[in-house]
């Protein structure tokens, strides 16, 4: 038996919003420690890795590890049926071929349940090596979303350069070029408004703006986004999911032919 109850169904809605641009379907691996999802987009350029810890749920029970393959379009349809203030419970029997979503209104006067068919997905898990990154940048998630949106008007690629002074985002294309420089915040009153850079060595990498834009669909999950970069390895874009977990996106760089 698997059962996970979340008082804020809006978290689940936001998580889905954050992954459905990149993935059509995904396997939710449920175990005693929580729910994990790891999937690459069809082109194998980006990877989504999400973790929701069991202790972050209001109730969590998982007697046996289960992997639930879900069509994210169908899951989106179902979660649209939940009001933001509803309590959501996901339930499945061991070896089940369906999952049930139960939505309860805060006053318990309306209770709905939706059963969804599960899919058998061939899944390849990737081993992601633990990496010490040369640069780790934290900035307001809304600011990052704005930068990705603004620069994607110029070109298909965004160059991210990180030095100890700050971080620079650049793009160039047919209409011209654009550079956005963010300096490290000198005095930090509010952490969620700060730009911070932890740098071992400066890094400049080029990425496809289309993917960066897709990652920013997670903006509503967190005030802060963290970018981790090292020369010639995939970028990691991380958003915390409240007190319950995180979503990380990995993006392979573009390199000189």
């Amino acid at each position: 038996m698997f059962e996970a109850r979340l008082v804020q169904s809006s978290i689940l809605k936001k998580v889905l919003e954050a992954i459905k641009d990149l993935l059509n379907e995904a396997t939710f691996d449920c175990s005693d420690s929580g729910i994990q999802l790891q999937a690459m987009d069809n082109s194998h350029v980006s990877l989504v890795s999400m973790n929701l810890r069991s202790d972050g749920f209001d109730k969590y029970r998982c007697d046996r590890n289960i992997s639930m393959g879900m069509n994210l379009g169908s899951m989106t349809k179902i979660l649209k049926c939940a009001a933001n203030e509803d309590v959501v419970t996901m339930k499945a029997q061991d070896n089940a071929d369906t999952v049930t979503f139960v939505f309860e209104s805060p006053n318990q006067e309306k209770v709905s349940d939706y059963e969804m068919k599960l899919m058998n997905l061939d899944q390849e898990h990737l081993g992601i090596p633990e990496t010490e990154y040369a640069c780790v940048v934290r900035l307001p998630a809304g600011e990052f979303a704005r930068i990705c949106r603004d620069l994607s008007q110029f070109g298909e690629s965004v160059v991210i350069s990180c030095t100890k002074e700050g971080v620079k985002f650049s793009s160039a294309g047919d209409i011209g070029s654009a550079n956005i420089k963010l300096a490290q915040t000198s005095n930090v009153d509010k952490e969620e408004l700060a730009v911070t850079v932890e740098m071992q060595e400066p890094v400049t990498l080029t990425f496809a703006s289309r993917y960066l834009n897709s990652f920013t669909k997670a903006t509503s999950l967190s005030n802060v986004v963290q970018l981790s970069m090292s020369p010639d390895v995939p970028l990691v874009v991380e958003y915390r999911i409240g007190e319950i977990g995180h979503i990380r996106y990995y993006l392979a760089p573009k390199i000189e032919d």
Binding site: M40, S43, H44, V45, S46, L47, E124, H125, L126, G127, I128, P129, S157, T206, A208, V233, P234, Y250, A252, P253, K254, I255, E256, D257
Partner: peptide
């Protein structure tokens, strides 16, 4: 000219 790398070149399937 830059070309897009695939994650397969960095991470191994387990």
């Amino acid at each position: 000219r830059k070309s897009q790398m695939s994650l397969d070149s960095y991470f191994k399937v387990i």
